[in-house]
Simulated assay, not measured.
Amino acid sequence: MIPAADLHTAAERFGTPLYVYDAAELDAALARVRAAFGAARVFYAMKANPNLGLLRRLAQSGVGAECVSPGEIARAEKVGLTGEKVIVNGPAKSAAEYAAGARLGATFIVDRAEEVGRLPPASRALVRVNPALEVSTHDHLATGAAGSKFGVTLAQAPAVLDALRAAGHTALGLHVHIGSAVRDAHDFTAAFGRLTGLRARTGPLAVLDAGGGWGLDADLPGIAREAHAAAAAFGAELWVEPGRYLVARSGTLLTRVVGTKRTGRDFVLVDAGMTELLRPMLYGAAHPVTPLWTAEPGGVWDLAGPACESGDLLAQGVALPTPAPGDLLAVGEAGAYGAGMSSNYLTRPRPAEALYEAGGWRLVRRRETPEDVWRAEEDNAE
């Protein structure tokens, strides 16, 4: 945990809104994954946070990357990841993604039967299977539900494996990822159970990729035991793809109080909002909020951002000491889908990002300026 004094130092040095990352917590999360999953191969689901500073740290620790866009593939290459260290995933891959993935020698995850004919020659591939489960997470995060756009059905999977082999590809095995921020570990047990039911139709496989999506407080050793058992049923090596689990708790969004307002509710107005942290508005996500000042008890407040949107609330019903302009708040568990989802809506420059390591700060993304936001428009103006 980064000391409060050092958070104040970062806010003074780099300004707010500001994303800060704790290198020690990132390392600790990776250690927990490795302790639970043992010899399983680990690929970081880059969409959680694509910052090059974090990617380099993970790559140097031997972690591969799961990429879902041409830009993410380029980031993987930028930090030196190639070949079997790279997975290319996604339900609607472009020609650019196939070409970039082939150039790096990546493994492709086949999301639909028709994709077999689009793969570059002699590709390595996994078949993504949708286990058609009700999953204990927000509907927008449930990728293993029957109505989800991801994967092939259990009935289709063996034929897709056969089609890969017939087309000259290496059919490594199966992939399953049921969602993000999954609360109930039994969901994973159910998913793995449905996959192992395919064993009689697939025969032995080289790889079972069990995805990620574990809640931050999940029973990781228990999930790992189930995943290893499923892999063993196929005689397969186990791969996992943690994203949010690795980076969420390492990241904090620092924001300053602008003022207060009492209407139908009591609001603390802050300088960060939906353009910096979209998850509360998009998923109803709840992030812990810590005041970094001392004062008399001040009641219960909603944290309202600067956007002209009624839904621009970072948190609701937060007990805070009496706030004053300039006071600093730490919004926790923001390392995943925070900075990566930040936007330039309202021509708001995206925030800076800083890494805390060995008691010191290092800027890993500078704060944008308005000129950065409109540069592409100006360069193309007639």
Results as ranks from 00 to 15, higher is better:
Ala4Arg: 13
Ala5Trp: 07
Asp6His: 14
Asp6Val: 04
His8Cys: 04
Thr9Gln: 15
Glu12Trp: 07
Glu12Gln: 15
Gly15Asp: 05
Ala29Ile: 00
Leu30Gly: 08
Val33Met: 14
Ala35Val: 09
Phe43His: 15
Tyr44Arg: 00
Met46Thr: 15
Pro50Glu: 03
Leu54Tyr: 05
Leu54Val: 02
Arg57Ile: 03
Ser61Glu: 15
Ser61Asp: 14
Ser61Leu: 14
Gly62His: 05
Gly62Asp: 09
Val63Glu: 11
Ala65Val: 03
Cys67Glu: 04
Val68Cys: 13
Ala74Asn: 02
Ala74Ser: 13
Glu77Leu: 09
Val79Gln: 08
Val79His: 08
Thr82Asn: 05
Gly83Ser: 07
Lys85Pro: 02
Val88Asp: 02
Asn89Tyr: 11
Asn89Gln: 11
Asn89Arg: 02
Pro91Ile: 11
Ala92Asp: 11
Lys93Thr: 01
Ala96Cys: 02
Arg103Ser: 13
Thr107Val: 14
Phe108Pro: 02
Phe108Lys: 06
Pro121Ser: 11
Pro121Cys: 09
Ser123Glu: 03
Arg124Gln: 13
Ala125Met: 06
Pro131Leu: 11
Glu134Ala: 15
Thr137Gln: 08
His140Val: 11
Lys149Asn: 11
Val152Pro: 06
Thr153Ile: 10
Ala155Asp: 14
Gln156Ile: 04
Gln156Leu: 12
Val160Glu: 04
Leu164Arg: 12
Leu164Gly: 05
Arg165Asp: 12
Gly173Ala: 08
Leu174Trp: 12
His175Trp: 00
Val176Asp: 07
Ser180Ile: 00
Ala181Ser: 11
Asp184Arg: 12
Ala185Tyr: 00
Phe192Trp: 08
Leu195Ser: 10
Leu195Pro: 06
Arg201Trp: 05
Arg201Tyr: 03
Thr202Met: 02
Val207Trp: 03
Asp209His: 12
Gly211Ser: 09
Gly211Trp: 04
Gly213Ile: 02
Leu216Ile: 13
Asp219Arg: 10
Asp219Ala: 08
Leu220Asn: 05
His228Gly: 07
Ala236Val: 09
Ala236Leu: 09
Val240Trp: 00
Glu241Ser: 12
Gly243Leu: 06
Ala248Gly: 08
Ser250Pro: 00
Gly251Val: 02
Val258Ala: 10
Thr263Ala: 14
Arg265Cys: 01
Phe267Thr: 01
Val268Asp: 04
Asp271His: 02
Glu276Leu: 01
Leu277Asn: 09
Leu282Met: 09
Tyr283Leu: 15
Gly284His: 01
Val289Asp: 04
Pro291Phe: 11
Ala295Thr: 07
Glu296Ser: 14
Glu296Cys: 00
Pro297Phe: 12
Pro297Thr: 03
Gly298Pro: 09
Gly299Ala: 05
Trp301Phe: 15
Asp302Asn: 15
Pro306Thr: 10
Glu309Thr: 05
Asp312Asn: 11
Leu314Arg: 07
Val318Ile: 14
Pro321Tyr: 09
Pro323Tyr: 10
Pro323Gly: 07
Pro325His: 01
Gly326Met: 02
Leu329Asn: 10
Ala330Gly: 01
Gly332Asn: 07
Ala336Trp: 00
Ala339Thr: 00
Ser343Tyr: 06
Arg348Cys: 09
Arg348Trp: 12
Pro349Met: 07
Pro351Phe: 08
Pro351His: 07
Glu353Pro: 04
Ala354His: 10
Ala358Met: 03
Ala358Arg: 15
Arg362Thr: 15
Leu363Ala: 09
Arg367Ser: 03
Pro370Glu: 04
Glu371Leu: 12
Asp372Cys: 00
Val373Gln: 05
Trp374Arg: 13
Ala376Lys: 10
Asp379Cys: 01
Asp379Leu: 15
Asn380Ile: 10
Glu382Ser: 13
